[in-house]
Design a protein around this nucleic acid. Structure first.
Length: 779
DNA sequence: TTAGGATTTG
């Protein structure tokens, strides 16, 4: 991208330069210095008309002033631009623009004596691998009236419901469907893109280009595109878009709050505040109006007979036959089924032998067919791919469960079937890379990376289960975390003793309540010691709907400690939504570190935001400040966990109290800390169960009151995590196997304490399990 | 020119 036109916001460039470039001071621009990986930055104080040299090449000259040295005698330098780059620059560079020049050649300036500028000049051209970054300010009407500044082309964008047959237009849209660039039957690559916009009109565009890189860089449904010079025509009674001469596109991530950085192969493009605003508006519209959850999956999630999109890294490739080609890929997770291996000649297999061997249990073979072969052949080992609409098929005999799963990328482009190469700057790739680096190849059998099918498989074999239980019976399925010096006490003795006391026991778990394990999760207030049920999603939805009736107060937007965006839904309700992004050091943080507050959002919208941002706090406006909703709703959402406050013990403080955390050096946004500054008494998730224990001398009911220790599962996470739910169910099946006689039950070693419970009518002794945990080989 | 969304059947 040799010439880039960038925007300036409040005097600062939003787009960072490549990180390997370092700024070079004017006085260091001397012959004999190494200027590789250096850039010079200056402001345009003079430019000359574009001319042609004798050899036919274009030539453009500008003078840059170094503001850092503006008080020096020599503070300006000539920049000579050659070839295509001269033309590109002449078209967009304006007086007053700030320019960065990299990859330049330095030479003595023959005119230094006359013009009084720097003794050297800088020469740049595309051939020399130079890059020019132009930081331009929005050309305002007022500025255009002054003679020295000319106006950049002003583009008009047509909403999708105003498109007319036979016109060439500029437009914006949210990607509803796309086919990544594929080889057409003609001479070009083709990409099909269906867009929607707030007018709710759909437009399908068919785009051609000989260079796939010149087609829109769309990676997922929900991305936002800007098309320039697209031709509108009618086909089969429907309006459609098609590339016309000069077609150009920009693509943006569609996530609300993500940096607005265009993806394009255009050498020159305009992109300023107005465009940024349009993208941001489309993002929030799409977030509230479109359902854009794709069929993405990890290898650990695959099932036979489905179509899915896979984000992965290419480890190996090989030719198979004329119409099919093999890709070996991994995503760091393990497929729960045996996967097929496509037989190929060792000499045909491309890829690092050591890596292929090391990852052999984590890679899967994907066979791609027909039109995808050409693209597959060109892929580089190690590159990151998104393969769209892979088909999984269970091979072999139908009644044999163990027959391996096959992965096919069939011919054709139905449903967007195809292969896309993702750049390393892509957020999903960054996430995947970090995950791949964390994969423990030696012990890839850890529980985290294990799929549920594997877990089931662990006990699939009855003999295994028997021997596992036998082992558990002899030893103990639970262990003590303290007080090992205590001796065992029989249950009969405990039942005949007064409370309070502590005992070590050895007993069997005859039964437990609740049998439906999800009912064991409650919320506990450690201040008033009350327990309550975990509210269900409907309650929250109701409260959100209620609060959406009050529109966000415009006075409470964009304060010193948060930035706000507000929009109105396009449906009949015309609901107003505001999102306030809390800043740190006056800057927005990365989405994964960001706390945001939302007004007027629905349950679905709030839920979507939690997938992307660190913390979400639902709020509403009052006269003077934002405030929390009713405490029956979670006051904070982090990931999939909803945090609640105790209604009795909380005294909510104004939301601006949060700004004290935002001002910390590294805000960690811990729920406990957030709760504290907001005056909320945080309710904690606990497991509450009643265990009926027997030991041959008697039976007693002991309560389990456990945040995390007993099951080694955080109670806060279990309601939203299938894996943990299965793990807990398996633990219970092991310590209390269903349908067994007393003799066949395993032993538990536990500590219990007795305590008195009195009310006006009666006095009882209760027992509670403590300092006990499920044995490691049970969980 | 090509494809014009709407799963292969290897």
């Amino acid at each position: 991208m040799p010439v880039q036109l960038l925007k300036i916001i409040k005097g600062k460039s939003e787009t960072l330069l490549p990180s390997h470039l370092q700024k070079e001071d004017l006085k260091h621009l001397q012959e004999g210095f190494d200027h590789t990986n250096k850039y010079f930055q200056g402001i345009v104080i003079l430019s000359y008309p574009l001319t042609k040299l004798r050899d036919g090449r274009n030539f453009f000259k500008v003078v840059l002033q170094d503001l850092d040295n503006s008080f020096s005698r020599i503070n300006s330098i000539n920049i000579l631009i050659y070839g295509k780059m001269a033309e590109d620059c002449a078209n967009v560079i304006r007086h007053g623009d700030t320019i960065v020049v990299a990859g330049f050649k330095l030479a003595k300036s023959p005119t230094a004596r006359e013009d009084g500028r720097h003794g050297c000049h800088l020469e740049v051209s595309e051939e020399a691998g130079s890059a020019v970054y132009i930081y331009t300010r929005p050309r305002t009407t007022a500025a255009s009236e002054t003679a020295s500044v000319s106006v950049a082309p002003k583009y008009v964008y047509t909403p999708l419901n105003h498109l007319k047959d036979g016109t060439i237009v500029n437009l914006y849209g949210v990607v509803k469907f796309f086919k990544p660039p594929y080889v057409s039957k003609g001479t070009d690559y083709c990409s099909v893109v269906t867009l929607v916009d707030p007018s709710n009109v759909k437009l399908t565009c068919t785009l051609f280009n000989g260079n796939p890189d010149s087609l829109p860089k769309i990676y997922k449904v929900g991305d936002i595109v800007r098309f320039h010079r697209i031709k509108i025509k009618e086909y089969n009674g429907q309006i459609q878009g098609i590339t016309s001469v000069g077609f150009a596109s920009l693509t943006f991530d569609g996530t609300v709050g993500a940096p607005v950085v265009p993806r394009t192969s255009s050498k020159v493009y305009t992109f300023m505040d107005e465009e940024q605003k349009t993208v941001e508006e489309l993002r929030v519209w799409a977030a509230s109006s479109l359902s854009i959850s794709g069929p993405a999956a990890k290898l650990s999630d695959v099932q036979p007979m489905l179509f899915f999109d896979l984000t992965c890294q290419l480890v190996g490739k090989a030719k198979v036959d004329g119409s099919s080609f093999l890709l070996k890929v991994w995503d760091g997770t393990k497929c729960p089924y045996p996967t097929w291996k496509v037989p190929v000649e060792a000499r045909d297999l491309e890829g690092e032998k050591v890596v292929l061997h090391q990852l052999q249990n984590l890679t899967v073979d994907i066979l791609v067919y027909d039109n995808h072969v050409q693209l597959a052949k060109s892929l580089k080992i190690g590159s990151f791919l998104r393969i769209y609409s892979i088909h999984t098929k269970q091979g072999g005999a139908e009644n044999e469960n163990v027959s391996p799963i096959e992965f096919h990328l069939h011919g054709g482009t139905c449903y967007g079937r195809g292969i896309g190469v993702l750049p390393e700057s892509n957020l999903d790739v960054k996430e995947l890379k970090a995950f791949l680096e964390s994969v423990d190849l030696a012990g890839s059998q850890n529980m985290e990376s294990m799929s549920s099918v594997e877990l089931d498989g662990m006990f699939k074999n009855i003999t295994d289960l028997e021997s596992h239980l036998q082992k558990c019976q002899q030893l103990s399925v639970t262990v003590l975390t303290d007080h090992q010096h205590l001796k065992n006490t029989e249950l009969k003795t405990i039942l005949n003793s007064t409370a309070p006391q502590q005992y070590r026991i050895r007993a069997k778990l005859r039964t437990y309540k609740p049998q439906k394990l999800y009912q064991s999760i409650k919320l506990h207030c450690s201040k008033c010691n009350s327990l309550q049920e975990v509210p269900d999603g409907d309650d929250f939805d109701c409260i959100l709907r209620g609060s959406a009736v009050t529109a966000p107060n415009p006075e409470l937007q964009n304060t010193s400690w948060y930035d706000s965006v507000m929009w109105t839904t396009q449906d009949q309700k015309q609901r107003k939504i505001a999102i306030h992004f809390v800043k740190h050091d006056e800057m927005l943080q990365q989405p994964e570190d960001t706390l945001l507050m939302i007004e007027g959002g629905t349950l679905k919208e709030v839920w979507k935001l939690t997938k992307r941002f660190k913390c979400v706090i639902p709020v509403r406006s009052n006269k003077d400040d934002l405030e929390l909703l009713d405490l029956s709703a979670p006051f904070l959402l982090q990931g999939s966990i909803k945090y609640y406050g105790c209604k009795q013990c909380s005294t909510p403080k104004p939301i601006k109290s949060l700004s004290s955390i935002a001002a910390e050096q590294r805000p960690s946004w811990e729920p406990a800390e957030i709760a504290q500054v907001l005056g909320i008494e945080l309710l904690q998730y606990v497991f509450i169960m009643k265990f009926t224990l027997v030991d041959g001398t008697g039976a007693l009911n002991a309560y389990l009151f456990d945040y995390e220790k007993f099951f080694q599962i955080p109670a806060s996470e279990i309601l939203t995590n299938n894996f943990l739910q299965q793990k807990m169910q398996m633990t219970m099946n092991t310590i209390c196997p269903p349908g067994r006689k007393l003799d066949d039950l395993p032993w538990l070693e536990c500590f219990i304490k007795s305590y008195n419970v009195r009310d006006a009518m009666k006095h009882q002794v209760h027992y509670r399990i403590f300092d006990t945990t499920v044995a490691e080989d049970v969980v």
